[in-house]
Design a binder for these strands. Structure first.
Lengths: 264, 264
DNA sequence: CGCTGTATTGAGGCTCCTCAATCCAGGTGG
DNA sequence: CCACCTGGATTGAGGAGCCTCAATACAGCG
């Protein structure tokens, strides 16, 4: 994997989104959008201007909760957050986790009121994106609107995969799939390797994400550990038998990754 | 709820998307986008041009299946379709049903290869939208890109609600929620009333959508029927006690509907 | 050094599944 | 016009998976 040299014409820089030196000068978010739409330097600059105030949020205190109106959205710089919905019974379902480079709260902005809660799992740093700025940018830089549509579709694909898992995979398969997906995403932003990653999630959170009880999560993790597949202890996930895990989970990462920008 | 008269300036026509006579001249799809972004007549025209060949598909034969490349997407004119994913074990999970006016296959176009299957539930008529036309339209008519982003986000909200249901609602609640959501969507496009709607889905399909077995669907439907809540027989859903059903399902339809366009 | 949140393990029970039989309606061919 | 066929709906019986409750073990922290 040789690094491409920075070409004169910026369009060419992003033909292979993971190999452009120039891109690493921009935010991980810009790098992500560059995977979908080959961005010009103007578009890159517009993206950079989008980043508003840098804000810090403490762990465990909701950044956004259901029903709030006129929210901003955020681009996550460091830390993990989760998006979840509360049910009347007091239970919750975690829809997704966001890791550095992810966009969050887009739906809360597009609809005027938030339809889900956003809670930092750890201490979080994020750039605020004002709703007005976002919509202005879309009208002035239409290709960015398309790029964000693309990114949103990738997020939707993840939610769909999550739905499939909860609907049709049993607890072991579902857990395996979840860990593999998380690992693949973290690897894409340089926060993990093929053999493992740091993971700040508690078994309660895993349970709320996987649609099962924390107790059962514990039993499943033990089974996976005793089967020599994967270990999740003390905030660290170690993948011991990737192939077996992939086979168990029926994991296909194609929905997470692309070879290059789809729109030239 | 008085009907607004058709104003001279088209921008104003769509302030209340369900009350504009002019809009009914356009496709249901245009009406839906108009709920998000107040469309000018030029934008409307661009939307109309998007509709390509009208195609017919027989029931039960996949229109698109996983892995196909270079797909078109479609705007559904009549009939029902479902989007589903197959698992290695031979089971499937239905992610969503599409009804007239819905856009389908957007993700299959944005990514170059389809990540899910699309199967007509009934005989279907749909306008083909070519991938190139779609992207061209986005660049020439940027507000339409934003509008489609909005519509895609609404779809995502539905998938999220579906995920929450499968993860954290039991079979009765889930089924009730599903029927309510379907009813609300059909009502929005004039295919149902508050008291019921025609529904071509078999109990097998319901099971694949709700993440349960067809046998259990049957038992749950019986319970709901015997409880006087709702009857689903011979392709017809009759809602007998809407309030009780809403309470049971913890149903909040705000994610389906909006008061008016969000972007003026 | 107790407090608090998390992890771990056991016991018992409920939900939902699978397998299997029966019933019913619509369509088809004789 | 009826026997047959097919796909869906319905019901029963037994079992697997996951849940809840509850106890105990840990680890970090003020």
């Amino acid at each position: 994997m040789d690094r491409a040299t920075v070409a004169a014409h910026p369009r060419l820089d992003v033909c292979h989104h993971r190999s452009s030196a120039l891109l690493t000068l921009h935010s991980p978010f810009a790098r992500k959008l560059g995977a979908f739409v080959a961005l010009t330097s103007e578009e890159m600059a517009a993206l950079d201007r989008l980043h508003g105030r840098r804000k810090t949020f403490p762990a465990r205190r909701d950044m956004v909760h259901q029903g709030m109106t006129n929210q901003s959205c955020y681009i996550l710089a460091s830390g993990w957050v989760c998006s979840y919905k509360l049910l009347s019974g007091g239970t919750r379902q975690i829809v997704d986790f966001q890791i550095p480079g992810d966009f969050l709260g887009l739906r809360s902005v597009l609809f005027r009121t938030a339809d889900h809660n956003i809670e930092p799992v750890t201490k979080v740093e994020a750039s605020e994106v004002l709703a007005g700025d976002l919509l202005d940018t879309f009208s002035k830089t239409p290709r960015l609107a398309t790029a964000v549509l693309w990114a949103a579709s990738r997020d939707e694909a993840m939610v769909v995969e999550h739905l499939v898992g909860i609907g049709r995979r049993d607890a072991r398969e579902r857990t395996a799939h979840f860990l593999l997906e998380l690992g693949a995403r973290l690897k894409l932003v340089g926060l993990g390797t093929a053999s493992g990653f740091a993971c700040p999630l508690s078994q309660y959170m895993l349970g709320d994400a996987l649609g099962m009880s924390a107790v059962h999560v514990n039993r499943v993790l033990r089974e996976l550990r005793e089967g020599g597949l994967v270990t999740f202890q003390r905030g660290q996930v170690e993948i011991h038998d990737l192939d077996a895990l992939v086979a168990l989970a029926d994991f296909d990462k194609s929905y997470l990754d692309h070879d290059g920008p789809l729109l030239k």
